[in-house]
């Protein structure tokens, strides 16, 4: 929440404070409060249901979810239920995607801002907004048909951590760029003009003044991009190969937490189904931690 909205809302609050709803408006007010309650309760409902469904596996297996000899699940406890390879896979793909995406996103935003052509900034923003709306399954399809065979020529089979990271990097690029762009925009224009008046080149001004001021917003954008990469299902499902293993190189196929859910949910029952809900719970925990740290980093931008 940035300053201008909180100012506006406090002015708004002063106006409305002395005029509480009366008569049949009370019913409307009640209805509106019910709607908000429902919306707020949704998160609790989701966490409650996912937690309840995962209870069975947590009770029956406990630490076995991380120490078993592999992932050969069944409906009862005789199977093997180690989620560690999937957790490692998810983290590796997402971090690599972020490492590829962040420099490209930030550098392109910096360049656009350093040109100081209003039309270029607006065109860039519009384009990025449009690209952010491309369905993930389209990225997955393109990755499967174009990127995987290309990497396969380097080293078979092509479906690999690297393939997933490359396609994911492209997918989260608009998200990171959009947030970096709004962080740069939030830098007061006086600072920019001051830098230019001191004779700095526009590039220096963008790099040393605007980026420095906006750094927490840029980092918050990167963290949210990482969250998107971690939670993405379709791309990793289609291009990562879905082999459950602890990889030794980035050219090896892996399976992520999300892909595991998508692959096995259709037929899973008993403990296996419950273990899939445990991975859902892990994903929620990871994403909440990321969002929380992004909020702490980027107060005022996110």
């Amino acid at each position: 929440m940035n300053n201008s909205t909180s100012l506006a809302s406090s002015a708004l609050a002063n106006t409305a404070l002395r005029h509480s709803p009366k008569g049949h408006d009370r019913w409307l007010f009640l209805l509106v409060r019910l709607c908000a309650l429902l919306a707020a309760a949704l998160l609790l409902l989701i966490v409650a249901f996912v937690a309840t469904e995962s209870g069975q596996a947590i009770q029956a297996l406990g630490a076995r979810l991380f120490t078993d000899s592999g992932w050969f699940p069944g409906a009862d406890a005789s199977g093997q239920f180690n989620l560690t390879p999937m957790i490692v896979g998810s983290l590796l793909v997402a971090l690599l995607a972020m490492a590829i995406s962040l420099p490209i996103a930030v550098a392109s935003v910096l360049f656009v801002h350093s040109c100081s052509q209003p039309w270029l900034v607006i065109a860039y923003r519009r384009a990025i907004e449009l690209l952010a709306g491309i369905p993930s399954v389209v990225f997955g399809l393109w990755g499967l048909v174009v990127i995987v065979p290309l990497l396969g020529q380097l080293q078979a089979p092509g479906t690999s951590i690297l393939a997933g990271a490359l396609v994911l990097a492209l997918m989260i690029l608009p998200t990171i760029a959009l947030l970096a762009d709004s962080a740069l925009r939030a830098v007061p224009n006086e600072l920019r003009l001051g830098g230019l008046a001191l004779g700095l080149s526009p590039w220096r001004v963008v790099l040393r003044i605007q980026l420095l001021q906006a750094r927490s917003g840029v980092i918050a954008g990167a963290i949210l991009g990482l969250g998107r990469a971690l939670g993405e299902t379709m791309v990793v499902l289609m291009v990562c190969g879905n082999v459950v293993q602890l990889p030794t190189s980035i050219m090896q196929p892996i399976r992520t937490l999300t892909a595991n859910i998508a692959l096995e949910m259709a037929y899973a029952g008993g403990l296996q189904r419950s273990a899939l809900f445990v991975s859902g719970l892990l994903l929620i925990a990871l994403v909440v931690a990321l969002i929380w740290s992004a909020h702490r980093m980027g107060r005022g931008y996110a």
Partner: peptide, 28 residues
């Protein structure tokens, strides 16, 4: 506090992975 809680809950909801919504939808 209720209003703030509602906002925060919606912020987190926006970041929950879509596959988790799938899990929830299937169970609920």
């Amino acid at each position: 506090r209720a209003v703030n809680g509602c906002r925060q809950s919606l912020d987190i909801l926006a970041g929950v992975p879509s596959i988790v919504f799938g899990l929830f939808g299937n169970a609920f």
